[in-house]
């Protein structure tokens, strides 16, 4: 629970935990309704720090990697790489130098961002408050902007590769000549296929966001239970370990599947 001196209601506690630290081009720090050009500084900062951590770790191992007997860290990193590589090879049967590193980045980065969910909910926000930062939301994947930013990037790659592999005509044909291959059905097909296409990034982003947001919210609710939170935090955290790995894996796997669909003719 919060140790603030002022009267603290449950709703304000939750509200506080769900508010981002923002900076907007127009209104500056923590302005209300500051429009589109607002940045969630906490989400971005944590995400970038975790991404850099991931890249630094893997890069330092890659630089020192030996063909001979690997160390324990190298073994672990190679295990992750091989796991991703195996999944990519199982699903994607083309030649594309981007897909595997993309999948690895998604898996490791999303996992690390999800992992922030296991940090006790009050720890970092209170530490931030102690040094004068009013709001801090530490789990970037509970921010819809973060998950949609990634899923829309994947969406852009889907469209790019569809056009690159099948040509613009092929892309249009895919949208209009399926599932009913007749000119009269073009409007129906277009409606169906656009929904299918648009559902990909939206579901990809919302799935990750929804899972993590719900998980975080339950952590916050447990934190409101007073002494009852002590036995409850642990089982939920254990259960959450499964969720954070699973969601990272699902995001990676769906990205590979979508991109492999973009490369293949039906």
């Amino acid at each position: 629970m919060s140790s603030q001196g002022e009267a603290l209601t449950s709703s304000s506690y939750i509200q506080h935990h769900l508010t981002n630290l923002t900076w907007s081009v127009d209104g500056g720090w923590n302005a209300h309704d500051a429009g589109f050009w607002t940045f969630h500084v906490d989400s971005l900062l944590v995400a970038v720090v975790l991404g850099v951590l991931f890249l630094w770790l893997f890069r330092s191992v890659a630089k020192k990697s030996t063909v001979g007997v690997p160390g324990k860290l190298q073994c672990f990193i190679e295990m992750v790489v091989e796991f991703v590589d195996e999944n990519v090879k199982d699903t994607f049967h083309g030649k594309n130098a981007l897909i595997a590193p993309l999948a690895l980045t998604i898996f490791a980065w999303v996992f690390l961002m999800n992992l922030m969910d296991l940090v006790p909910v009050d720890l970092l926000p209170h530490a931030a408050q102690a040094v004068g930062v009013p709001y801090l939301k530490v789990v970037p994947t509970t921010d819809l902007n973060v998950t949609l930013g990634m899923s829309l990037s994947v969406f852009a790659l889907i469209i790019y590769y569809t056009i690159k592999v099948k040509g613009f005509g092929g892309f249009v044909k895919e949208l209009t000549m399926q599932p009913f291959n007749h000119w009269a059905f073009i409007p129906v097909n277009f409606l169906l296929e656009s929904v299918t296409l648009l559902a990909k990034p939206v579901s990809l982003g919302l799935r990750l966001f929804g899972n993590l947001y719900a998980g975080e919210l339950i952590f916050i609710l447990i934190a409101l239970l007073g002494y009852w939170q002590l036995p409850l935090h642990f089982p939920w955290a254990v259960f959450h370990i499964l969720i954070i790995v699973l969601q990272a894996f699902i995001f990676m796997m769906l990205t590979i599947v979508y991109l492999s669909m973009a490369h293949e003719d039906h």
């Binding site: 995400a47 902007n145 949609l148 829309l152």
Partner: peptide, 28 residues
């Protein structure tokens, strides 16, 4: 929805590029 999305997308692109260029090939 706000500009965080764009920032995240940029960071994502940079990380993927770095991973593709400097991390994935030597490890594999």
């Amino acid at each position: 929805i706000n500009a965080t999305l764009i920032g995240q997308a940029i960071a994502f692109a940079v990380f993927v590029w770095f991973c593709m260029k400097y991390v994935w090939p030597p490890l594999l």
